[in-house]
Amino acid sequence: MKIDTIELARRIRIQSLKMVNKARASHIGSALSISDIIAVLYGEVMRVDPSTPQWDERDRFLLSKGHACVAVYSVLAELGYICKEELLTYGDDWSPMMNHISHKVPGVEFSTGSLGHGLPFGVGKALAAKRKGMAWKTYVLLSDGELDEGSNWEALMFAAHHKLDNLVAIIDYNKIQSLSSVHDTLALEPLTDKFSAFGWQVSEVDGHDHFQLVTAFDAESPKGVPKIIIAHTIKGKGVSFMENSVLWHYRPPSDEQLGQALKELANA
């Protein structure tokens, strides 16, 4: 069944907002930033079976920026991995849905929270698939700020050297990190050149344009070359007063702000 990824992304945003509002949790800006990428991956690109989360042939997805977990929990509920009612246990005592992505939730491969862990772990999965002759792919979604972590650059070198063309990394390049802009913290540019120099096939897209995202995911890389997609995004995308603001890396929306955000998304 064809999934309307635009509608899926809108639902992800709505669910994510409700979850952080109820739990008084942080990181809504980060979740809104990746909602379109998540919708396109789960709705169109990846081979998954929500009825069998551990299906051997599934593509593997790793959220390295684990703090944006509500977007993933939401898509898992929308696709039927978990019940939508469970989403509202987010942040509750003993809930499997902790405030960073948790492998105790069906459909989640790997828990993160500390940055710089997803890509090395994904490299191991991709290497295992190669060595075992498996066809599935590994997708790792990273933040731009987490590229400060040296472990990512170790993994980038390794993946190119070992010709892991079954590995796809996506950078959520919203250009804002914890205290300030990426540019003012540790400037990443020229980022495309850096990834190219590390031996990856690089493409740049508007991370909120589903056609551009699908085209980039579907594009063939040269044999033996891992792929990286730099997705230019807007932190807080979809809620006007949250966009491009460090504040919404931390602040949970009040009930009034939630109402305003949901109204904007209803009209989107």
């Binding site: 890509l119 191991g124 999965k125 295992a128 075992k132 472990s151 170790e154 993994a155």
Partner: peptide, 20 residues
């Protein structure tokens, strides 16, 4: 894995998650 122990350990965990 080269002189890169963080990646060495992370990728080892990834491989182990696939049965190794």
């Amino acid at each position: 894995a080269g002189v890169a122990e963080q990646n060495m350990t992370g990728l080892a965990a990834g491989m182990a998650s696939e049965g190794y």
